Simulated assay, not measured.
Amino acid sequence: MHCPSLFREERMEILHGLISAHPLATLVTSGSGGLMANLIPFSLHEGGDYGILRAHLARGNKQLDELREGAETLVVFQGPECYVTPSWYPSKAAHGKVVPTWNFVMVQVRGKARVIADAGWILAQLEQLTGNLEREREHSWKVSDAPEDFTEAQLKGIVGIEIPIRAIEGKWKISQNRLLADRQGIIDGLRAEGGCPAMVALMAHE
Results as ranks from 00 to 15, higher is better:
residue 15 L to R: 00
residue 16 H to R: 06
residue 18 L to T: 03
residue 18 L to D: 03
residue 18 L to H: 08
residue 18 L to R: 08
residue 19 I to G: 11
residue 19 I to S: 08
residue 19 I to R: 00
residue 21 A to P: 10
residue 21 A to N: 11
residue 21 A to W: 12
residue 23 P to I: 12
residue 24 L to D: 10
residue 24 L to W: 03
residue 25 A to F: 00
residue 25 A to G: 02
residue 26 T to F: 15
residue 26 T to W: 15
residue 27 L to T: 06
residue 28 V to T: 06
residue 29 T to S: 09
residue 29 T to N: 00
residue 30 S to Q: 15
residue 30 S to W: 11
residue 31 G to I: 14
residue 31 G to E: 07
residue 31 G to F: 05
residue 32 S to F: 04
residue 32 S to G: 12
residue 33 G to H: 07
residue 34 G to A: 04
residue 34 G to P: 15
residue 35 L to G: 04
residue 35 L to N: 05
residue 35 L to W: 02
residue 35 L to R: 00
residue 36 M to P: 11
residue 36 M to Q: 13
residue 36 M to S: 11
residue 37 A to G: 05
residue 38 N to Y: 15
residue 38 N to D: 13
residue 38 N to F: 13
residue 38 N to A: 15
residue 38 N to T: 06
residue 39 L to W: 06
residue 39 L to S: 10
residue 39 L to G: 09
residue 39 L to H: 13
residue 40 I to R: 04
residue 42 F to A: 04
residue 42 F to L: 10
residue 42 F to E: 05
residue 43 S to P: 02
residue 44 L to G: 06
residue 44 L to P: 06
residue 45 H to E: 13
residue 45 H to C: 10
residue 45 H to F: 05
residue 45 H to N: 12
residue 46 E to C: 06
residue 48 G to L: 15
residue 48 G to P: 14
residue 49 D to I: 12
residue 49 D to A: 13
residue 50 Y to Q: 07
residue 50 Y to V: 01
residue 50 Y to E: 01
residue 51 G to D: 07
residue 52 I to T: 12
residue 52 I to Q: 09
residue 52 I to W: 04
residue 53 L to I: 05
residue 53 L to A: 04
residue 53 L to R: 02
residue 53 L to S: 02
residue 53 L to E: 01
residue 53 L to V: 01
residue 53 L to T: 01
residue 54 R to A: 10
residue 55 A to I: 01
residue 55 A to L: 02
residue 55 A to V: 04
residue 57 L to N: 05
residue 57 L to Y: 00
residue 57 L to E: 00
residue 59 R to G: 03
residue 60 G to K: 04
residue 61 N to V: 09
residue 62 K to F: 04
residue 63 Q to M: 06
residue 63 Q to I: 07
residue 64 L to Q: 07
residue 64 L to D: 09
residue 64 L to H: 08
residue 65 D to V: 10
residue 65 D to S: 09
residue 65 D to H: 00
residue 65 D to K: 04
residue 66 E to Q: 12
residue 66 E to P: 07
residue 67 L to N: 03
residue 67 L to M: 05
residue 67 L to I: 01
residue 67 L to K: 00
residue 68 R to H: 06
residue 69 E to V: 11
residue 69 E to W: 05
residue 70 G to H: 07
residue 71 A to Y: 08
residue 71 A to G: 10
residue 72 E to G: 03
residue 72 E to F: 14
residue 72 E to D: 13
residue 72 E to S: 14
residue 73 T to N: 11
residue 73 T to P: 13
residue 73 T to G: 02
residue 73 T to C: 15
residue 73 T to D: 10
